[in-house]
């Protein structure tokens, strides 16, 4: 672990991404203690610019933007964590089943992955929202479904690579059960690449959640998602540009941070996955 951390820290972009990611996660975790009530309305103080009292100004209902931005980070991180956990678990199970199981199991799983993969992420998410309805819980399920095939394919490819490895053959000869082989040997050996993919998916998840919330299909009022902050800010852009500026800045920063961190993590864990020359 210390080697991985050291590798990330030695990379300037990795270090930058890690610091930003930690800062964002920290602000998300400690948001309730760092700020006041993000939903407290103060209509006499609408569209206020940044000041000592309101570091990022206020929105169209006089709510403190700094507080809402930090609580927005909380939502982004919660969604990212939940989506990644669900997609990683489900994708791994299906990928391992496809890779290790018989062809009758592999085919339908691959067809499912192909179907899910054939839609652009946001379009697919919009279609699912139409079925399941808006709301943050549904957004978690929907986004998990859209990114799950990515994990599944990586898991299957890794299992196929390992399937006939000598140490697994030895286990089989010694009479180990399939469950033991999968849980004791296969999954630990494919975990590295999957963790890398998980890290790389976080910015995508944050963006999709913000996109759905911007369209009014994600976080419901009064929850302060960065997407809803952008939407409200856009509606009242002529009165104040601060909400759009700060929400956009945070969304960009978070995406950049987790992308840089994910790439550094990839380089540290599995340099073979690098795509750059």
């Amino acid at each position: 672990m210390s080697t991985i951390f050291g590798h990330i820290w030695r990379s300037s972009t990795g270090k930058f991404g890690l610091i930003l990611a930690v800062a964002i996660i920290g602000s998300a975790v400690f948001a309730p203690w760092l700020t006041g009530d993000p939903n407290r309305i103060d209509v006499l103080n609408r569209f206020a610019g940044p000041s000592w009292q309101h570091w990022m100004g206020t929105d169209h209902l006089g709510r403190d933007l700094f507080s809402r931005i930090l609580h927005g980070a909380r939502i982004a991180m919660e969604v990212a964590a939940a989506v990644t956990a669900i997609a990683l678990s489900l994708g791994t199970v299906l990928g391992v089943a496809a890779g290790y199981g018989p062809r009758q199991v592999e085919r339908p799983i691959l067809i499912l992955f192909d179907i899910l993969y054939s839609f652009p992420n946001l379009i697919f998410a919009l279609a699912l929202v139409a079925i399941l309805g808006p709301g943050l819980e549904n957004v978690v399920i929907i986004v998990a479904m859209t990114v799950m095939p990515h994990f599944g394919r990586i898991a299957r490819a890794q299992v196929l690579r390992l399937k006939h490895a000598p140490f697994l053959e030895a286990e089989r000869v010694l009479g180990a059960s399939t469950a033991r082989i999968v849980f004791r040997h296969v999954i630990p050996n494919i975990a590295g690449p999957l963790i890398v993919v998980a890290g790389m998916e976080v910015p995508a998840v944050i963006t999709i959640e913000a996109g759905l919330s911007f369209l009014g299909l994600g976080a419901r009022p009064p929850l302060a998602s960065w997407g809803t902050l952008l939407h409200d800010g856009y509606t009242y852009l002529s009165q104040s540009a601060w909400p759009v500026f700060f929400a956009g800045m945070m969304l960009t920063t978070a995406t950049l941070a987790f992308t840089l961190f994910g790439e550094a993590l990839r380089d540290a864990i599995d340099p073979r996955l690098r795509t750059d020359p």
Partner: peptide, 10 residues
């Protein structure tokens, strides 16, 4: 209307 509803919500 959405803003009015949010104020009522608060």
């Amino acid at each position: 209307f959405q803003a009015a509803a949010q104020i009522a919500q608060a």
